[in-house]
Design a protein around this nucleic acid. Structure first.
Lengths: 162, 162
DNA sequence: ATTCTTGCAAAGCCTTTGCAACTGC
DNA sequence: GCAGTTGCAAAGGCTTTGCAAGAAT
């Protein structure tokens, strides 16, 4: 959507298959999982489990709530999706084939805006070194009002004053 | 605990009282709230609602689960506490009287380590400028293994090899 | 006296789980 | 055919809420 894709050698689907095969107890790639992976990687956006279930239902995909939750978990493990905790909600977004980035989150319209900032990685590296901490991931979210919502608010205030 | 307090002119208690009085519909400062504010600000740590309820119960404070949840919300609004979303869980920590900082979160032992990094603020400032975004707060959490857990893991691996 | 707060228990959300039927390998 | 997966519905956490009784101003 906003950032350029990274070119990757495998399709998300085959990468997931490979992941499943590589598990200690080899796992199976089912029709439901295939449908779900395709559905998710045909779009790029941020979603949570319930939204995905609704969207897939609307698109006439036949998959149960339980399977969606189970498969989301596997997709995160497989490195295809990234979990994002905004407030108490868990969102998901593409990880595989998409560059590292952070988020602006509009508390008004719930929009997520992606941005890249290399300085972040330097900070992480340095702090981890200092604290002898072995990083496995990070979350950086800036909350506030996006430009649209901000403009709308200013205009409203202006009207209120008349 | 790890960072130096900031000197503040008011006690958390009176700051909260002032906040309550200043509300559109003036709100009341009750015994339960007083007990809770004192309990929280006597220590410095990260906690979630359920932990707090347990701890207060153990300390023989009489306050109901519902009131704890209601009061936590007010304390955040009042600027006394800060919400922290780690995974799907909501933690709280002192905000009033405590300097800005970010967190390392050990996924093994759940420890929270605080650190300060001014560069973060520069990044925020610049990104917000670029996107015409009005910031209201941010979350920056680095997840991984703390030095203790890391050492334990390395030792375990060493033993496994013998 | 009025209006806000409390405590309780019930309801709500989101997520996980036990189990019998089913399906990929 | 075996082992892993599905769908269902029930159960689990955590949080919110309706309401009658109680407390602050």
């Amino acid at each position: 959507m906003s950032l350029p894709r990274i070119s990757v050698s495998q399709s998300p689907e085959s990468k997931f298959q490979e992941f499943l095969r590589s598990r200690p107890k080899s796992q199976r790639y089912t029709d439901q999982q295939r449908e779900m992976v395709r559905f998710i990687f045909e779009r790029h956006n941020h979603f949570d489990a319930e939204q995905l279930i609704d969207d897939m239902k609307r698109a006439k995909c036949s998959i149960s709530r339980a399977t969606v939750y189970r498969t989301l978990k596997k997709l995160v493990e497989a490195g295809l999706l990234r979990e994002l905790n905004v407030g108490p909600r868990t969102f998901y977004e593409h990880d595989y084939g998409y560059p590292q980035h952070e988020h602006l989150y509009c508390q008004q319209c719930q929009k997520m805006i992606e941005f890249q900032a290399d300085e972040i990685n330097k900070v992480i590296e340095q702090v981890c070194l200092e604290h002898n901490f072995q990083t496995q991931g990070h979350t950086f979210i800036i909350r506030g009002l996006c430009s649209d919502c901000n403009r709308a608010r200013v205009n409203k205030r202006r009207l209120d004053l008349i």
